[in-house]
Design a protein around this nucleic acid. Structure first.
Lengths: 347, 347
DNA sequence: TTGAAAGCGCTAACAC
DNA sequence: GTGTTAGCGCTTTCAA
């Protein structure tokens, strides 16, 4: 941290090469012809001095930075991070630098970062499970950059979105339970309106009951007021608590539908500690098909959400949006199959 | 995405307020006195037009962006993401925007991003589990910004670092096993030299055996050539494979030390499928104390790495570095206790 | 085939 | 108390 530092700029390169900055600039961009000889001389000097053009200065003129932002509610979440990894991978050949910002479930921080990103000349933004409303996006996306909504509820409107038919998927896993002989099917999760996905899942559960001629029993619907962040623990604690009161009625429950795989794993632990075996006494289902559910004991019956695919399609939507406005009404809604493993039994 | 967009700048604000840009600038920065009246008028107009100063233009002059970067090898990794979340949280009051870049285990990409970050006028960088050598940091940190190494091996040199005494911790968990009557203690993990942490852990295992008078048996040392990314699955597959050959000798193993919690969970599944019970037939230990290990069946005996603490101390080191060079030789090495749960038995 | 120079949006020295 | 102005490092028009 002592020696002469390399802060060399385009002017230095020009001087060293005995040409104008214009010529250096064009050698780099390829925007106009530069004589082979001149070009080679310049490139050699650039290499010699490890010169890297200044992204900031360039952005100021071009109003594009080569940066793409991902705004997400949480990083310590296998579900999101797989989607994010897939977006990154799909965008890799495009020479973008991907930067991720996690709000740690703070909606205000999220909004702030979204607004500030304007002046950073970010070239595009993915909102992964973020709670930012599209009204806000429309209002504050001053530069009209592509914004892709990923893993959100479908609020009836059509913005560039890649998500999953959560309602349908939840309906189907409830149907699977009903068809295998379960009648008292409970639910564990949360349903905040800021979290449209959670609401859709819960509605899917309700619909699933209905179409199978079952009725909702509020004694076995365990809805937490607040989102369950660190799902294992929170779900575990919440269910233990909820179950500690009036165990008699609860035991009529023969299956418990959980909002995510993590919640299911937490639930299984809570149930086990109350001497309820899964699936012997109670069947439990997850949602998402994360690795956690594949390696839990018992392995989870769950809904397989194609996280890699979501990321890939989100990246494609972004690229479409970049090439004009013809992706503006892209609305990709993916279906998800139920995967039956060991956490449910046939009644 | 159609209406007039807000791209208002400092000049516009100045014009609207009937003052010079200087005055607007100083109202914002507080760098010199502005008459209450003028100030109020300016602030009102700023609010009215939702003006946000352009970060890029500001950075170009100040050579600081207000951005702090975290470069990490992988996002879908509970261990790293907890550390990252903690860094973010600790830096929150400081008004930095945190941007994370994950290389998805691609060292070349990592190097690239590190170099490019120079011209982005990033104010500081955390290398979380990154493989970037400090030589490289010294060579390419042109702007001499604070760089904090997080969760790295201690390579004998003293750079700003916050990490864990992996060697000691691993030694201690091996000792715990030895003291509880285990003699044939195996190892499952990898040990690439690019990944110094993994080497230290392995060395800790070796030392642990030695100080307890045990000898290494290569038949029960399962070292994968390559890093195990998606640990559950890779560990599971690798151990199944390794065990399929000559099961007779392997069965002498009474305990298996695993390099991470995820690997331990994968291992348990592999062992179970070979009809080996954990901990009845074989004890298994993890490393890290992630939530996965708390909710696995059986719950893991492991080493408790203070991830929140690491993040907090890393942020503090960064802040120290910002205020001059007096943090340059900060080298925080944390000790980690063994946590005994259900995956090990007393022989 | 190449250069000069204006300017992106902002800050800060210098001036009054 | 406030304004004028010269840049920050680059791209790009216009001119040669």
């Amino acid at each position: 941290m002592v020696a002469e530092k390399n802060n060399i700029n385009i002017k230095d390169i020009a001087r060293l090469a005995g040409v104008s900055v214009t010529t250096v600039s064009h050698t780099l961009s390829g925007n106009r012809y530069v004589k082979e000889e001149t070009k080679n001389k310049i490139l050699k000097i650039i290499k010699q001095h490890s010169y890297e053009p200044n992204i900031i200065a360039r952005s100021l003129i071009k109003k594009r930075s080569g940066l793409v932002g991902i705004i997400t509610t949480a990083l310590n979440n296998e579900f999101y991070s797989e989607i994010i990894a897939s977006i990154e991978e799909s965008l890799n050949p495009q020479d973008y630098i991907i930067i991720v910002n996690s709000s740690n479930h703070d909606p205000v921080k999220e909004l702030n970062v979204f607004r500030k990103s304007n002046s950073l000349f970010i070239d595009g933004i993915f909102l992964v499970g973020s709670s930012i409303k599209y009204d806000y996006v429309e209002k504050y996306n001053y530069r009209n950059i592509p914004v892709v909504l990923v893993n959100r509820g479908c609020q009836g409107k059509s913005y560039p979105t890649v998500t999953v038919n959560y309602l349908k998927a939840m309906k189907e896993i409830v149907s699977y339970l009903a068809e295998t002989g379960h009648e008292n099917i409970g639910y564990l999760g949360w349903a905040k309106d800021t979290e449209s996905v959670s609401v859709e899942k819960f509605n899917g559960y309700i619909k699933g009951l209905k179409i199978n001629g079952l009725k909702k029993d509020d004694n076995i619907v365990f809805l937490k007021d607040d989102i369950m962040r660190n799902s294992f623990e929170e779900a575990y604690i919440f269910l233990r608590q909820s179950l500690s009161g009036k165990p008699a009625e609860k035991l009529k429950m023969s299956a418990l539908v959980c909002q995510t795989d993590h919640i299911a794993v937490g639930a299984i632990k809570a149930l086990n500690e109350l001497n309820l075996g899964v699936p012997e006494d109670i069947s439990v289902t997850g949602f998402g098909n994360t690795s956690v559910g594949r390696f839990s004991v018992p392995a989870l019956t769950t809904v397989s959400v194609p996280k890699k695919e979501i990321g890939k399609l989100a990246a494609q939507t972004f690229l479409k949006l970049c090439g004009g406005k013809q992706g503006m009404h892209e609305f990709v809604l993916l279906d998800c199959p139920v995967i039956v493993r060991k956490s449910t039994r046939i009644n």
